[in-house]
């Protein structure tokens, strides 16, 4: 589903990603862990189409399509969703409208009819219940004045409504209390299916107790330095990152 080959990327002239290879197949859950500043968010943002990162080498294919040629909104319509590490606040744009515009844009791209008000509302209600979102949050501006945890929950709520095929979750667990973590994990697991995939960026095993990954990768200094099964995360939790050998520099 997602094939990243030898991805190099710069920001403001400095190379941050030094050749990433990653293959995610439908139905799989991959976790990416790694020290602060190692490039995890950079990778996530590049997948979503952020243009401040310059891809200097390598390819990203999504279902065989060259992702790097698509605008962010086209990627979203193709089924990619990024839950941001730091969701922005957008004063004046209502959460509900925003979601409706997003959903209809995605449906239109897929050649589906726009949802009418009733259908939209019932979908939103269902997902609100799933994520424990209050009516009050829905009526406010996008993320405006939301607590850190509420913003993260809102990301997953949006994901649930848009039902993407590849969800990239960038530290969605940070800022969530224990109960919220379970609710959010539950929301993510509800999306799991044989034709979908999930890429979870996290620092903590805690999340992976709920969203159990098939593969765990360690990203350090812009490279994937180790990959393994779900036990790798436990090992990391115990020992930190220092025991992993840096690969010989290229």
């Amino acid at each position: 589903m997602l094939e990243i080959r030898n991805l190099h990327a710069n920001v403001e002239g400095a190379e941050i990603l030094h050749g990433i290879d990653l293959t995610v197949r439908a139905g799989e859950v991959h976790a990416i862990m790694g020290p602060n500043g190692s490039g995890k968010s950079t990778l996530a943002q590049i997948i979503a189409g952020r243009d401040c990162y310059e891809v200097t080498e390598g390819t990203i294919l999504f279902d065989g399509k060259n992702l790097l040629e698509l605008e962010p909104e086209e990627r979203a319509c193709e089924g990619i969703f990024l839950a941001f590490q730091y969701p922005v606040e957008i004063p004046g744009v209502s959460n509900t409208y925003f979601l409706k515009a997003a959903l209809n844009a995605v449906r239109k791209y897929r050649g589906e009819d726009e949802l009418d008000a009733v259908e939209f509302l019932s979908l939103v209600r269902e997902k609100m219940k799933l994520l424990g979102m209050s009516e009050d949050l829905m009526n406010r501006s996008v993320n405006e004045g939301f607590s850190g945890g509420e913003k993260k929950r809102n990301e997953i709520f949006q994901m649930a409504v848009l039902s993407p095929r590849l969800a990239v979750l960038d530290e969605t667990d940070s800022g969530l209390d224990i109960d919220a973590l379970k609710i959010v994990a539950n929301g993510v697991n509800a999306l799991r299916s044989p034709d979908r995939a999930i890429l979870v960026v996290t620092h903590y095993q805690r999340l992976l107790d709920y969203i159990v990954p098939d593969y765990v990768h360690v990203l350090a200094n812009g490279r994937i330095v180790k990959s393994g099964g779900k036990d790798l995360a436990l090992e990391l939790e115990e020992k930190g990152y220092s025991w992993i050998d840096e690969p010989a520099s290229v």
């Binding site: 979503a48 909104e73 969703f81 957008i90 925003f98 844009a105």
Partner: peptide, 9 residues
């Protein structure tokens, strides 16, 4: 960018 990642042109 945030709006674009949700499918809005």
């Amino acid at each position: 960018f945030y709006l674009q990642t949700r499918g809005i042109p």
